[in-house]
Write a protein that binds this DNA or RNA. Structure first.
Lengths: 133, 133
DNA sequence: CTAGACCCTGTAGTACGTACAGGATCAAGA
DNA sequence: TCTTGATCCTGTACGTACTACAGGGTCTAG
């Protein structure tokens, strides 16, 4: 069966927000689709596949610029598997860095919280620690 | 010695961006400061302390709304140590959740990368995995 | 035929700044 | 005293990745 959905159907099918679909069209992640005589968009199976691909990349934390790049590579057909792997590796390093940052932050916060005796007075070890020069 | 800095001096002293200082003033994180006769801002020691406090909270990952809330609590003097600790705990839970999300993401990405043979052809296991319905 | 669900476009708002434009002021050296 | 370059001022636009309207047109089931 060949699908041909409108915006709400598409959004439900892929589990994304309606507005996101239009946004992705305006910034060129997905191209302009076919329209009905009255101007309603009709999403073909190819449109759906492309959007799903983009959404998966997004869910993997790629920014839209990277998504655009990967789509362009696939569109052009002038990519190699090695290039794709390299982009993925770079992205993974960025995520690892974020993980490290967040882990350090959690540690700091845990240390701060541990100093607190949770009294019902305004005198707070957390605030004192933060206010100290 | 009582400090009284202008914007560049302040930004250098606290290691933040000049524009950030002005931004924090426009959104009310820090109040309007004294000015010279010609209108140049002068940051007192109290201004500096307040900004440092706000920047530390920001560095701990609190959003500006939370920073504003904590500052208001301190300003009003009507807070308890327990309330502060609770905010910190809530924030810590949010960070933990982000850590989990990011960790899952890293795992997915690692799995994807592992399937790739890094060839110089366009046929790519990563792209195939992402394109598969 | 009508009600309500859906579609269209354009614009404004979110968080947290960053970056400029166009002009005024200040401090130090000649 | 003059000039030069650093700094200051204000206002506004830009960035990401959407989200939320407003004001109108279309479609479909009863």
């Amino acid at each position: 069966m060949r699908a041909s959905l409108k915006r709400t159907g598409l959004a439900r099918h892929l589990g994304c927000n309606i507005e996101t679909v239009r946004y992705y069209e305006t910034i060129g992640i997905i191209g302009p689709t076919d329209r009905t005589a009255s101007g309603h968009r009709l999403y073909s199976q190819a449109d759906i596949d492309r959007l799903r691909f983009a959404l998966r990349l997004r869910d993997l934390g790629f920014c839209l610029e990277e998504v655009r790049g990967l789509l362009a590579m696939v569109d052009g057909g002038n990519h190699t598997c090695g290039q794709v792997a390299e982009m993925a590796e770079t992205h993974r390093r960025n995520i690892r860095r974020k993980l490290d940052d967040l882990q350090r932050l959690e540690t700091s916060l845990a240390g701060l919280i541990a100093t607190c005796h949770r009294g019902d007075t305004p005198d707070c070890a957390i605030l004192n620690a933060l206010a100290t020069q």
